[in-house]
């Protein structure tokens, strides 16, 4: 999950993209953590998480909420994705109230994350920042594809799949919702943000309409 900070996109798109990781620490609080982790996932549902998952079982979009929660064991790392700041503030408030005792890591635009912390009287402890992508960047796909593939930090959404689905959307072969679900499927941990995906697909479709119009 290191990779959540490398979610690619313009700040205006990242406004709709937050993730929270709930994690135990070996030798500190892993033993007996199962009910706390399940409670976090219940809170994520209550506060309108647009995706959540359990790395060892799968994401809510694929196996459903009950199975994700049921598969939690002591020490399972879970994560939830949110598409607006209010939901993040609300779940953080509940986490402060319930004091579950496991580590909470919030990812998003830095200034927005700071605002979330301020509004819930939490103090950031340790930061992880992205200094971007280095090396043979000419091997990377185009930015719109990268926006999708970097949402799955484990790199399980293939460039070829994104390109195919972009094509299907452009040709009206699929709906935005179905296309977003298909793209989210390989991301086992539930880190893909389907709301952001739909917006992105909409953009892809609009762009192709403009090109079509210009051709005429």
């Amino acid at each position: 999950m290191t990779h959540t900070i490398h979610r690619y996109g313009k700040p205006e798109d990242l406004e709709y993209d937050y993730s929270i990781i709930f994690i135990s620490a070996r030798n500190f609080n892993r033993q007996g953590s199962q009910p706390k982790i399940r409670r976090f996932l219940e809170l994520a549902q209550k506060h309108h998480a647009v995706n959540f998952g359990n790395m060892e079982a799968g994401s809510v979009l694929v196996i459903g909420p009950e199975k994700v929660i049921e598969a939690v064991k002591d020490g399972t790392t879970v994560q939830a994705v949110f598409s607006n700041q209010e939901d993040v503030v609300n779940i953080l408030s509940d986490l402060v109230k319930e004091d579950l005792g496991l580590s909470v890591v919030v990812q998003g635009l830095e200034h927005r994350v700071r605002e979330c912390c301020m509004r819930t009287n939490l103090k950031p402890h340790t930061w992880n920042h992205s200094l971007g992508i280095w090396g043979k960047t000419e091997l990377l796909p185009e930015p719109e594809v990268l926006e999708v593939t970097t949402m799955c930090g484990h790199g399980l959404v293939a460039v070829s799949l994104v390109k195919k689905i972009f094509e299907d959307v452009r040709n009206g072969k699929t709906t935005l919702k179905k296309a977003a679900q298909k793209l989210a499927k390989p991301c086992i941990c539930g880190m893909i943000n389907p709301v952001r995906l739909e917006r992105l697909l909409e953009r892809v479709m609009e762009k192709s309409l403009v090109v079509e119009e210009e051709k005429k």
Binding site: S19, L95, V96, G101, V105
Partner: peptide
């Protein structure tokens, strides 16, 4: 530096 980042918020404690 990219605009997105993540932080721990200090809620972890020993069991």
């Amino acid at each position: 530096v990219r605009p997105n980042a993540k932080t721990t918020v200090g809620l972890g404690r020993p069991a």
